[in-house]
Structures are given as structure tokens and as C-alpha cells.
């Protein structure tokens, strides 16, 4: 769904990202110089053990948090130098988010939640309605528009959340452990939908997960360890199953938890 990029120009470029938490006395360097380039249309997975800094990395790239040092450009714009207000606007117009615990507003119906990112500007209602119906069809949530979040299952909530993240046609979709709270069937369904959106509609996605099965849907997987990039894998022409076993191998070497249950 992302707008056509001029060929050859990367969508996201991050250089030497460092992030230090804490006060002067007790500092904790979580990101220790990360570089990343994301091309339009990629589906990038970020893996690593718990505490490796995945969420921190995603938040920094997604402008939710600021890096201690380093440069980030998204769609040609230097987001590190942007002021808070401009950043909010950029986030609202160009980025989409899916969170582990859905973060839907309880007081709004599913449809109202999905249309929320458009609620401040005044886009044409007709156009919004078209995007909406196309999205809910793709995500198989046509029938829940009038329901409140507490009436929905976890999987439905997460797909509503995905629709909300895409309603304004963002340049890139960030997802932090989107399947973390879902059972395996709902997780598979969501990931399948994300893959479909990526392949058919060219939505650029960056997804953090510690689940190898989830990352096997990606076109590329980064492995973080101790705040540094350990390695990365491209799926290429391999099947998802082959890619999955490669991921498991790397994870074995990495020493992260292996989810044998999958």
C-alpha cells in the first residue's frame, strides 16, 4: 500500500544508532551502534533474546523514542532532528504501529478505532470508507466494525489494530511482538495477512519478535545480541519451512530460547 518509491532509494536508513538509558552514575547502553537499511517493500524481522534491545531499537526507529546518537532518515526525512510537534505529525501521517497488547481504545468501536488516525485531518469520507472496506476485507474483520474491543477475540483485536495501523497508508508499518498475546492459530492467521499485505500491496513492514515461527514470514531477519547486530538472514527463494529451520539454527548458535514447541 506504500506509495511507489523511486527505485534505488532506500525507505529507511539508520546509521550507528546508540541508546543509553539511566542517569550519569548508572548507565545502561542498550544499543551499541546499529546500522540498518530497509528497502521499500521489505518485510524485516528483528529477533533476539528477551532484553536484547529489540523494542528499544524499534521505538527509536519508529520515532517513539529518541536515540542517544546516530542518524535516522525515513522517506528521506531526518527524524532525529525533527521537533516533537513535527515528529507527531510525521508519525501520524507516515508510520503505522501494531503493539503486543493491541492498544485499542475501549470506548470506541472497532471501526472507530480503525479510523482514528484519520480523525484529525479531513480526508474525504468516501475515500476513507473505501480504504476501510478494502482493509477489513483483507483482514477478514468485515463483521466486527460495530463491536467494542471487549466483544472481540485477541486475534480479531490484533487485526483491528493492524487495520488501524494501515488506514492512513503509512510508508512503513512497525509491529512489536504482534503475536505475543495470541494463540498459535490466531498468530498464524495474522502473520499470513501481514505477509499478504506485504506481497500483494507492497506494504513495508518491520516486525520485532522472539518467535522464530513468526519471523519465518519475513523476507529478511536481523538478529540482535547485546545491542549489536549479530547477523542477518535473507529468505530469498526458499520456502517458509526452510527459512524457519535456518532461523532456528542461527538462534541455536546465538543461545536464545529455542521454541521447540513449534
Amino acid at each position: 500500500m506504500a506509495e511507489k518509491q523511486e527505485s534505488g532509494q532506500p525507505l529507511l536508513v539508520a546509521k550507528d544508532i546508540r541508546k543509553v538509558f539511566g542517569s550519569r552514575k548508572r548507565t545502561n547502553e542498550v544499543l551499541k551502534g546499529l546500522d540498518l537499511t530497509v528497502e521499500p517493500g521489505e518485510f524485516v524481522g528483528v529477533m533476539g533474546a528477551s532484553g536484547a534491545g529489540k523494542t528499544t531499537f524499534l521505538n527509536v526507529l519508529a520515532t517513539i523514542d529518541r536515540p542517544t546518537s546516530g542518524t535516522i532518515t525515513i522517506d528521506g526525512k531526518d527524524i532525529v532532528k525533527m521537533k516533537d510537534k513535527a515528529l507527531s505529525k510525521f508519525r501520524r501521517s507516515s508510520l503505522g504501529f501494531i503493539f503486543q497488547d493491541y492498544n485499542l481504545l475501549d470506548t470506541l468501536t472497532a471501526k472507530e478505532n480503525i479510523l482514528l488516525p484519520l480523525s484529525l485531518g479531513n480526508p474525504s469520507k468516501k475515500e476513507a470508507e473505501e480504504t476501510y472496506s478494502q482493509l477489513v476485507r483483507t483482514l477478514s474483520i468485515e463483521d466486527v466494525g460495530g463491536h467494542y474491543p471487549h466483544e472481540l477475540s485477541g486475534g480479531q483485536k490484533q487485526r483491528v489494530s493492524a487495520a488501524r495501523a494501515l488506514i492512513h497508508k503509512p510508508k512503513i508499518l512497525f509491529a512489536d511482538e504482534p503475536t505475543g498475546a495470541l494463540d498459535s492459530k490466531s498468530a498464524a492467521m495474522l502473520l499470513g495477512k501481514m505477509e499478504e499485505l506485504n506481497l500483494r500491496q507492497k506494504v513495508t513492514i518491520m516486525m520485532v519478535t522472539h518467535d522464530p515461527l513468526a519471523s519465518s514470514y519475513c523476507s529478511r531477519v536481523l538478529f540482535l545480541r547485546d545491542g549489536r547486530l549479530y547477523t542477518e538472514l535473507y529468505r530469498g527463494e526458499r520456502t517458509r519451512q526452510e527459512f524457519f529451520s535456518d532461523i532456528l539454527n542461527v538462534q541455536g548458535v546465538l543461545g536464545g530460547e529455542v521454541h521447540a514447541s513449534h
Partner: peptide, 18 residues
């Protein structure tokens, strides 16, 4: 509004009804 609530209404009318 059929789902297309303005932002202000999403933060006022909806929770008031709720």
C-alpha cells in the same frame, strides 16, 4: 458519523456515552 468520528468527539462523546 458511521465510524468517522472526529478526534475531539472520539475523546469526548464516546467516553461520555461509555
Amino acid at each position: 458519523a458511521d465510524g468517522h468520528l472526529s478526534f475531539k468527539n472520539a475523546l469526548s462523546i464516546a467516553p461520555v456515552i461509555h
